[in-house]
């Protein structure tokens, strides 16, 4: 039984899936976007309108979060955060002259692989041939990747990426997604039929008042 569980957990396709950040974030967000609104709708301690509002808001927010995470964070925060750091730390011995954030991320990914696996990997072509850790180093970083069992690691650019991700998470997920969801939420609720439009509500109210007026007139007649 335990062997079956272990085999399932070590299934190569499953391992690849679990090690891909995009897939894991999308999976978790999908569960959040479905599980949380469903749970809110099951919370019978609050009225239906409140539940509909909270559930729609949660589903919308999680959807926006995954879209922002997959697009805005790598394309904006990582890219420009890395460029900003290149300007601030220009010439620093701990910060090699990577072309951009992608080149560093590709290098970091390759450096974690086994030597055999790394030597024929397609990402190797994305590392520039002349890139060196510093001027004193005789070998280029590509040569290190091809020859060394443990190629050099660079905590400073890695920290820049981490900081960019953290800033991106706060600005993108906590701020922009919240602001956007406030703007989209009510039109979405109207479209889903969770809420009637103010004009419709006024008409409904007018009809109710009219009906009440008629019944009062009938009462008076009686």
């Amino acid at each position: 039984m335990l062997d079956k569980v272990a085999n399932l957990l070590l299934n190569p396709q499953f391992v690849n899936f679990a090690n891909n950040t995009k897939y894991t974030v999308t999976t978790e967000s999908f569960f959040k976007a479905t599980g949380r609104p469903a749970a809110i709708m099951m919370d019978k301690k609050v009225d239906l309108d409140t539940r509909k509002y909270a559930a729609t808001k949660e589903g919308l927010y999680q959807t926006l979060c995954v879209l922002i995470y997959l697009t805005m964070i790598p394309l904006v925060f990582q890219k420009y955060g890395f460029k900003f750091a290149q300007k601030i730390l220009k010439g620093d011995k701990d910060f090699p002259a990577f072309k951009d954030a992608n080149e560093f991320l590709n290098y970091a990914r390759l450096s974690k692989m086994d030597k055999e696996h790394r030597q024929n990997h397609k990402l190797l072509s994305k590392i520039s041939d002349s890139l060196k850790a510093n001027d004193d180093d005789k070998l280029t970083l590509k040569e290190h990747l091809l020859n060394d069992d443990k190629p050099p690691v660079f905590p400073l650019p890695k920290g820049v990426i981490e900081l960019s991700n953290l800033v991106g998470t706060v600005i993108g997920l906590a701020w922009i997604a919240s602001e956007l969801s406030n703007h989209i939420l009510h039109p979405l609720m109207y479209a889903l039929g969770f809420k009637s439009k103010p004009a419709v509500q006024q008409k409904d109210n007018a009809k109710t008042v009219e009906k009440m007026g008629n019944s009062e007139k009938l009462d008076m007649k009686v």
């Binding site: 750091a85 650019p157 920290g159 820049v160 900081l163 991700n165 953290l166 998470t169 997920l173 906590a174």
Partner: peptide, 27 residues
């Protein structure tokens, strides 16, 4: 800036990310 990035690069704990996300979203 270098000190902060060095620290994050050497001590890359997922806890920092989770804490930042929880705190910022929670507020």
């Amino acid at each position: 800036f270098k000190k902060l990035c060095m620290y994050l690069g050497k001590n890359n704990k997922a806890l920092y990310g989770a804490l930042t996300i929880a705190l910022s979203k929670g507020i």
